[in-house]
Design a protein around this nucleic acid. Structure first.
Lengths: 187, 187
DNA sequence: AATAGAAGTCAACATGTGTTTACATTTTGC
DNA sequence: GCAAAATGTAAACACATGTTGACTTCTATT
């Protein structure tokens, strides 16, 4: 049992090859973020990169692995907690309104695909909830982190994906910021 | 211009035919709720009803119309506002934990399909947000109704679709109930 | 009983998908 | 400069999908 599972994945060695691999990753992220896992076709991603679809599979093995790699480049907690504790609510509310927060649309549009859902779930737990809980600290760190994520998902759904009539209402943004701050301040 | 758009849709006349049409609708709702629009195949729905796929299109015209019909049977505000005003938070929190609230998973799993998303968006606005706002009353009725929907979507995502580690935490359910109640009480 | 129309079946079409295999081209190490 | 490996292409495979039109079976009315 030396070679567990001989895949055909190739790690790029030349600078140029690394550039195209990165370009694939970038375009994949854009595609997944705008139309979700199922509707993002390898042919279209490859076309936008100017490359053959088969090359994607040589670098990433499968569409599912491509999604996992693309998601990992975009899910991280750093920008969320890059602020003073007493400004966390307003900071998060701002963040959710800029396209920097691409991870959530990417995950929310890919919920129906079981593979993509599993990837999203573990990425969200390990790369957002857990570090956020550590940053918040006791009491009930994990519960409060989960509440923050919950609220964020609801907000992104409302403001960017479902576009309900109230979308853009400043009063709602204000409410969101206060609700988030309350969770962060709770003790 | 007498016959606008001669579709081939048939309205069932016999009792038996109406039963099968209802059965199609029921099974469609179950399929859409559990795997979303894209992964719910007409062949599988028809198979579960014990009927031919072509019959579905004779009764509903297209998959998109089937989704619209199925969603309408399940999206309504009645159970949400069937309680005393001062118990709204706890009532909603309970409701979101029983499978009665099937509408949200059905919509959330179908976000990536543009057709299904549009149907969901208008159903949510017209059949939930608007009547809920009317029930809540001033001030800021629509904003508060939207906040309630936002929170509900986030909660369902957390507890039933993404299944984060904290899923089932009673403290979070408690927090949700209180947050919802605060929105309802605000003035 | 005959017959029109509804209720339902059947097989094919058109299209799109991720993936694979075989092949060509370029780069790199010796 | 040559050979081998890396980089990339081309075309087909295998499969699944919504949809269509022609066909059969049943039922109800005359």
């Amino acid at each position: 049992m030396a070679d567990e599972k001989t895949t055909k994945i190739t790690v790029p060695r030349s600078q140029k090859a690394l550039k195209t691999r990165d370009s694939i990753l970038t375009n994949a992220r854009i595609a997944f973020t705008s139309v979700g896992y199922a509707r993002a076709g390898l042919r279209e991603i490859a076309g936008n990169v100017g490359v053959n679809p088969a090359l994607i599979l040589r670098y990433f093995g499968s569409k599912e692995e491509l999604f996992r790699s693309a998601l990992e480049t975009v899910v991280n907690v750093h920008r969320m907690i890059d602020c003073e504790r007493d400004r966390f609510g307003a900071h998060m509310a701002d963040l959710l309104n800029v396209s920097a927060a691409d991870a959530l649309p990417m995950m929310l549009l890919s919920l129906s695909e079981p593979a993509a859902r599993e990837v999203s779930q573990s990425a969200l737990q390990e790369r957002i909830v857990d570090p956020l809980a550590a940053w918040l600290g006791p009491p009930d760190a994990e519960a409060r982190a989960t509440e923050i994520v919950m609220l964020s998902m609801g907000y992104v759904l409302y403001s960017r994906m479902l576009r309900l009539r109230a979308s853009g209402d400043k009063a709602i943004d204000q409410w969101l910021a206060e609700a988030l701050q309350q969770i962060a301040d709770r003790q």
